[in-house]
Amino acid sequence: MNIFRLAGDMTHLMSVLVLLLKIHTIKSCAGISLKTQELYALVFATRYLDIFTDFISVYNTIMKLIFLGSSFSIVWYMRRHKLVRRSYDKEQDTFRHFFLVLPCLLLALVMNEKFTFKEVMWAFSLYLEAVAILPQLVLLQRTKNIDNLTGQYVFLLGAYRAFYIFNWIYRYFTEPHYVHWITWISGLVQTLLYADFFYYYFNSWKNNVKLHLPA
């Protein structure tokens, strides 16, 4: 464990807590894409298949349980909770996430570290995580006023993977056989997808104006 990875995990945790806070306290999911939340639940479900077979550390297991629990409960809130679901913008959140899942699955069948069920699922979860934010970014472009919590949620979600990139660089130079091209490339693509959001987020923060993405 290194400081970059810890910072990444804590930032990721904070993004999930900000979202749960928003949904649980003000009972609203306005501006949040259910499609992205469902993709994230699928990402964690396929990546943490080994949660009970490969014990890494208490920290690792606890964090996996938190990410699994939070992502599925957010999907449950947005689908089932009578108050929260009312604030869900069904008409605007129209990204066909099936068209993200299928290519990632096909790519995982071709590009993986080892052609075993677990490794294919692991590669699938990495490719899917890289593109899972797309429905959310599309929704942000459509909804005019982005509230602070939603903006912070997306910002933290993008920042965590940026920290991970520093973690991979650090591990590459400190651990002799640490090479994971699949992780590195999908992590880089994922972070690049946030580039324009970061640009507008930083500007809105610098000029102290409401975050507004160009249509």
Binding site: R5, H12, K114, Y164
Partner: peptide, 10 residues
């Protein structure tokens, strides 16, 4: 023992 190194990152 399976030679797969378990993925230690989240």
């Amino acid at each position: 023992e399976d030679n797969e190194t378990p993925h230690d990152e989240l």
